[in-house]
Amino acid sequence: MTANQPTLSVESLRTHFFTRAGVLKAVDDVSFTVSAGQVLGLVGESGSGKTVTGFSVIGLVDPPGRIVGGRVLFKGEDLVGAGEERLRRLRGDRVAMIFQDPMMTLNPVLRVDTQMIETILAHDPAVGRSAAMERARDALGRVGIPSPDERLRAYPHQFSGGMRQRVAIAIALLNRPDLIIADEPTTALDVTIQGQILYEVQKLCRETGAALIWITHDLSVIAGLADTVCVMYAGRIVESGTVDDVLDRPQHPYTAGLIGSVPSRNRRGVKLAQIPGMTPSLLSLPPGCAFRARCARADDACLAEPPLVIPSPGRGLRCFHPQADAR
């Protein structure tokens, strides 16, 4: 393993769903990398393929979905070909996932301490029970849960939504994973609670040096949290780069439109710069650029598929007519 090898490198990943109504290309030629200690923000509107991308990385795509191409290199090891057993060992140990609904992680009928100790022992049986208990208590304290001793003996339903999400995060972080994939974990929570969780996650990543993929539809969260950002539209990453580059100097018309749509970016009472139309159905995508029907810059060139270009180091773009520094 070389020193500057990224923790995760996804190359031309394609995940398709073979539904009765046709083939749905939920993830189509997606590439990105995250290094240790880095936060990658994955933004896009609903149905753009963010969740499926996250699931594909950890091998959780269920039929009729299937990874049909590309590689997922986790510290150099390709996870696409890896067996179910290997993936299961990685999940919850080296790679952790946090879901929008914390009950995806938590078992409603088991006490929190049981679940946490089981997670620790499942991946490292050498740790004794009391040491595991100690670690569980630590983990709860670290995500900001007051009086962790009491809370350890509670059942998930005895927690509020924000607390539950924190417990799920604590469990995800128990084994100090190298990679954390967080799929809209704060979307269902209140602003003050979201603030608390962002704070804890930020602190933990800084401390443990884990690589973090933060999936969200909220550009503002990404702005405050991420180092790099990938903007997804209709299963593809249309623009990527550092947060400052992408948010301050968007080149893809979709990114620019999205930023213009955020109310706090606009003057009070003035109409928002809206993107016309709506997200296309992935089942009936016309050939060429998927954003064509909504794009003000579209012309005949856009009838072909825009290839991935690298306009400057560290950036990626899929557009024939990028906007030069529109601000």
């Binding site: 509020s160 924000g162 607390m163 209140d190 602003v191 003050t192 609670i193 979201q194 603030g195 608390q196 962002l198 704070y199 930020q202 909220d218 550009l219 503002s220 969260v221 702005a223 405050g224 949290l225 180092d227 947060v243 400052d244 948010l247 930023i259 955020v262 706090s264 970016r265």
Partner: peptide, 20 residues
Amino acid sequence: AGIPRLDARKRRFEPVKGEI
């Protein structure tokens, strides 16, 4: 203070403590 904003980069979130 707690709402994420587009122009606040790599900020340190300073949350309101406690639960609702």
